[in-house]
Design a protein around this nucleic acid. Structure first.
Length: 476
DNA sequence: ATGTGC
């Protein structure tokens, strides 16, 4: 992206002033190098988002932003239903409530790392991964509906999780307002055998070591210390979320003329929040959120079974579970006025500051853990939300490294086997059903995670707490 | 992301 097309307001704040149909500003949080490496489509897509009806505040892009379906991935936009605001299926994305959870063990990496081959093998056998993978659970219609309403709570009730996990999950494990009746037969059918599966693409399960601490007090509050083994799980709502996204994007596109909506891009198909279609999408989307929350709870359960078998002190406690693709009704102050807004986060993480009433009591003094996934070579970060993030981005931060090149380009440039061998020589065992998938997810196909996280910190969106380095990875 | 593809 050409920085001269933007107005630089601060070291990490670049503004697209409103022109043409734009109702609000676009703001990109990034340093100069990230702007230079960012696709110009992010600027165009953010301007399009800024022209949607009822948008409030700024249309925001995160330092890891790249172009996506309609909305940029790494985009945040808030809409006021009372001001004609819309809900946009492309603003949530296909993988509804894709997200990350972090489990903390009592093990030292010195103890577990030498067994990484065995560990990766056991996790690969224990957690189904890959395109079309199926789990051991089959849901009938009644159980499907209970899952779509109950999310991780349902999984816990069925014995595939722990009650103490629930407060550590956004929404307490289950998002209210789900409408299972708004989920099509087709979406249900696709999900019947997919609970407790990782999926493919950038989804993964990683065993990592806490290698760096940036904030001792917050890290201690989170139970993170150097040398400790942790597990990151990144997955979403599988076939069900994808099917819902596909169906509603089409329906919203067909319905747009009837709503009098002039779409800047057909991929931004949307519906007024206060319409039958908008209500139905939100209900189906919330059901898909619950599907993702249940899925991550079950994948964690399968992971716990492996750890319990392999280690005497294999207990895993949930630090937090965040969603990266969602739309939630939240209360935010805009221009001095508190308003209830529908906040779209697509490839972005909620990042609440310390003291926020929505945080569980034991995390409230510190702030929300913001879980940032990277590539299979560099691992992840744990950040904490800040008060500035509320003012800058509706309490949001970045979600990962962000792709630097397309999957197609990555396939052309890298070989999955070579990447696996190289990582093995660096002490990272990667298991995957798809060698091609490993090539598509090549570490060099991603932006520099350190640079992205540093830019987020400089922009005031979140503060670094700890860095996590992988040694065993199951890749979808 | 996805029973990769209307």
């Amino acid at each position: 992206m050409d920085p001269s097309l933007l107005k630089r307001e601060d070291r990490c704040r670049w503004v697209i002033p409103p022109t043409g149909a734009m109702r609000v500003r676009g703001v990109i949080y990034a340093d100069r190098d990230l702007i230079l490496g960012m696709d110009d489509k992010v600027r165009v897509q953010l301007s399009n988002v800024a022209s949607l009806p009822g948008i409030v505040g700024d249309a925001v892009a995160m330092p890891d932003a790249h172009w996506g379906y309609g909305f940029p991935i790494g985009g945040v936009a808030a809409f006021d239903a009372d001001a004609g605001g819309v809900i946009c299926a492309g603003g949530v994305g296909f993988d509804i409530s894709c997200g990350v959870r972090l489990l903390v063990s009592e093990l030292s990496a010195a103890h577990a790392r030498p067994r990484r081959g065995e560990l990766a093998e056991a996790l690969f056998r224990g957690v189904p991964a890959g395109l079309g993978s199926e789990g051991a659970i089959t849901l009938d219609d009644i159980d499907m509906t209970a899952m779509l309403n109950g999310g991780a709570r349902w999984a816990v009730e069925r014995g595939w999780g722990r009650p103490e996990d629930l407060p550590r999950i956004e929404e307490g494990g289950a998002m209210g307002g789900a409408m299972p009746e708004a989920v099509s037969e087709q979406a249900r059918r696709r999900q019947r055998r997919e609970m407790g599966t990782l999926g493919s693409g950038n989804h993964y399960l990683e065993v990592q070591e806490v290698t760096e601490i940036f904030d001792e007090a917050v890290a201690a509050g989170y139970g993170l210390e150097r040398g400790r083994v942790v597990v990151s799980i990144h997955c979403g709502s599988r076939g069900l979320g994808h099917q819902i996204g596909t169906e509603f994007m089409r329906e919203m596109l067909l319905a747009a003329p009837g709503f009098g909506l002039h779409l800047p891009d057909r991929e931004l198909a949307c519906a007024p929040i206060r319409s039958e279609l908008g209500t139905r999408y939100l209900g189906a989307m919330r059901a898909a959120v619950n599907c993702a929350l249940a899925n991550r709870e079950i994948v964690a359960h399968l992971t716990r079974q492996v750890f319990a078998r392999m280690f005497e002190r294999g207990r895993l406690s949930l630090l937090f579970d965040v969603s990266h693709n969602t739309c939630k009704v939240e209360s935010h102050v805009v221009a001095g006025e508190r308003r209830r807004l529908h906040v779209h986060r697509k490839g972005a993480t909620r990042a609440l500051a310390g003291g926020h009433p929505d945080l569980p009591e034991d995390l409230r003094p510190y702030g929300q853990p913001v879980l940032i996934g990277g590539s299979m070579a560099v691992g992840s970060y744990v950040l904490v939300g800040t008060p500035e993030a509320e003012r800058a981005a509706f309490a949001s931060a970045c979600h990962g490294a962000g792709r630097a090149m397309s999957r197609h380009e990555a396939l052309r440039r890298f070989g999955g086997r070579q990447i696996q061998d190289h990582l093995a020589s660096e002490g990272i065992v990667v298991k995957s059903p798809s060698t091609r998938g490993i090539a598509e997810e090549a570490p060099d196909a991603y932006k520099n995670l350190d640079a992205v996280v540093l830019a987020a910190e400089m922009a005031g969106l979140a503060r670094r707490v700890a860095r996590l380095s992988p040694f065993a990875c199951v890749k979808g």
